[in-house]
Nucleic acid binder design. Structure first.
Lengths: 152, 152
DNA sequence: TATTGTTATACTCTATAACTATA
DNA sequence: TATAGTTATAGAGTATAACAATA
């Protein structure tokens, strides 16, 4: 039997620490992106729309987002002048999300900044540890992603 | 300049992978706790109340939770028969949260189960890697916790 | 008939403000 | 006057259902 209290068992569990560290990373990312008035979710949409012209429906699949949520995301990106909707000539039901020049600039600035923030976040680890961490996280994600293990 | 697309840069960032892995851990934890009809948040409250009789206000501080949120948590724990409120004799404003026998049983069952789930979650890592991961997560949390760096 | 996008609506989670009772 | 707890309410964030336009 354990000599630790229930609260200690919870606080020291790797799974719970992982969850809390993930929250810390999220909070940091969201805070840093405020200077461009966007959330992490919105940056992800901008990132996918940066290279190719994609319909809202495609962005929903890529970002794992509901189509009604996507409507409000694209509304906001239009309001900020980062993107605009363009009806597809091929299929007029589709609204392609096209980044503006400012939108492209925001993606590039934000990604450069996030790389700096990440370096600061990981500064307590040496380069070898950072590689190990990245590798372990990737393996854990693949091993535990319900989407991958869902009956194919 | 980078040869990777913006979307690739986002997806491969350690910070973002960490955030998503944390979400995966949270989803797994919440799913596994459903068999006792509780959330991770509620298990944390049960865990702290397991050893000592604490007032709702104390539990709020320990769990980083608002007092209005705590009211609904304790309401639910009472409804499930896992805890009950007892007015403090010392300070009759305070409601001590006292676990029932069933509540104690739930804490012990749930913690034992979560240890199994965690082992499965980390199964892709060997024991040395698991220790390294735990150590790195703890260091990253301390280094990046806003609560610790907030002007003392 | 199915799909894309939109709107209106509801639901969950959490926090703010106002209140009661105790100190 | 301040604190512990409660209630009512509001605010994000997201999802469901019904609808319009198009295929």
């Amino acid at each position: 039997m354990s000599t630790r209290t229930a609260a200690q068992q919870i606080s020291s569990a790797t799974g719970y620490m992982l969850l809390r560290l993930g929250d810390l990373a999220r909070e940091r990312i969201e805070r840093e992106l405020r200077r461009w008035e966007i959330s992490g979710k919105e940056l992800r949409v901008l990132g996918y729309a940066h290279e190719r012209e994609l319909a809202q429906r495609d962005l929903c699949e890529l970002c794992g987002m509901d189509r009604t949520t996507m409507v409000s995301v694209v509304d906001k990106l239009e309001r900020l002048g980062y993107a605009s909707r363009a009806r597809s000539d091929v299929d007029r039901r589709k609204h392609l999300v096209v980044l503006t020049g400012r939108g492209r600039q925001v993606v590039e600035e934000a990604l450069a900044h996030m790389a700096e923030v990440e370096a600061a976040f990981l500064a307590t680890l040496d380069p070898a540890e950072r590689r190990q961490l990245n590798d372990m996280i990737a393996r854990l994600y693949v091993a535990n992603d319900p989407a991958r293990s869902a009956s194919p």
